[in-house]
Nucleic acid binder design. Structure first.
Lengths: 222, 222
DNA sequence: CTGGATCCCTCACGATACTG
DNA sequence: CAGTATCGTGAGGGATCCAG
């Protein structure tokens, strides 16, 4: 019972008491792709102090958002996973992430892109309509971060690392955001060298249709 | 410009840097029904210190989420309103509020219900399909907080205060949540006196169909 | 009276070191 | 690997004060 309560009988206020603390929703984000160990979560959020990570995990467990589970022998290690209630946050997390992506500028030099954030970002930007009657596998490489996205008639499967038979491998950087936001065209990106392709290059046009970020605010934040 | 950054090039991390600070999303909530003055916001969130309110308003304005506007004479007063970008947060706020409402327990003695939180809650719980071919006006009274909700064939209009010709006036308390969650039936609520009706009492059954909170976690949070 | 700014205190957060 | 312990800092909480 946090003494630091909003003092309102309101669903939103209660939600913010459950997952509104710093780092909490980023932990939920990293648990969306699947269960994680303490160290995995730490690696996915290098700037979180371990005591804060520990505290958040306890709070989220107490709130029924995540569940702490001890794996069967011989590993015997501990994983954290979303409960059913926690999984129901997925749509909110995706929507909020997409909203934020609309005003995302250039990354600071110290900013990183993690595997889980990229997986969730692909899910958030996925346009099922645009993926109808489409069957293709992409491999996306942002620095050391590699994920694959396989599309099969309106459905999406994203995962960590390479995939056996990608139709197109996309190697790029933060410019991927401008690409998905339609701020630059695929051909521009290829020409200025910010995107390198291996495979069927024409599939990049499909990619930016299937994964899309809506326009952001006309007056960018100061 | 918070020096306290998450250090990730990620839409969600950026969104949380914009609206993830304490009180920020509650301010957005209170601005959803319409523009508000500093004092209105303060009254809607009695526990927010004025310096924090001031800081949040500046940050949200700098982020392009809200806009500070000086009303024309003779009032000359200042109102804060959501920008278009800020308005695009509405669906997220409603979804997060609905998620939180599912695990909302009994209010603490000091907890309050404000007009704006109630208006937003009604919008969040509204089920357009259940409101098809329905035309009815409700007046909802929770203590001093009075709002009206008028339904017209799948559309909803909510507002502060009474409405001229309500078909049903519902006077109740926090039990309204259990009612919308289907945890108790309208007849039960009437029988035990936790709901008092004026008008066509049969319309209460429609009310709990049109405004609904999905089931919460089976294991309630500790 | 509205629309804040200023002060002081506390506690959560952040960084680091350390333990089972 | 999975956390706990310690300690400094800065944001949040609460009251008061000030300008238009």
């Amino acid at each position: 019972m946090p003494s630091r309560t909003y003092g309102q009988f309101c669903g939103l206020a209660h939600a913010l008491e459950l997952v509104g603390e710093r780092w909490a929703l980023l932990l939920v984000r990293d648990l969306i792709p699947g269960p994680k160990r303490f160290t995995d979560l730490r690696n996915g959020l290098p700037r979180i102090p371990t005591n804060v990570l520990s505290a958040r995990l306890k709070e989220l467990e107490g709130s029924g958002v995540i569940h702490r589970r001890v794996l069967p022998r011989p590993e015997g290690s501990i994983v954290y996973e979303l409960t059913e209630y926690g999984r129901d946050l997925e749509d909110v997390v995706l929507a909020l992430g997409l909203w934020g992506a609309r005003s995302l500028g250039q990354p600071l030099p110290a900013d990183i892109v993690t595997t889980d954030s990229l997986i969730v970002a692909l899910r958030a930007t996925f346009q099922p309509e645009a993926a109808r009657r489409l069957q293709v596998c992409y491999e996306l490489r942002l620095g050391d971060t590699v994920v694959h996205a396989c599309i099969d008639d309106g459905t999406l499967q994203v995962g960590e690392g390479s995939v056996a038979e990608a139709d197109l491998v996309i190697e790029t950087g933060p410019v991927i955001r401008s690409l998905l936001a339609g701020e630059i065209s695929p051909s521009e990106a290829i020409q200025n060298g910010s995107v390198h392709l291996t495979g069927d290059a024409d599939l990049l046009a499909r990619f930016v249709e299937v994964f899309h970020i809506p326009p952001g605010p006309s007056k960018p934040p100061g």
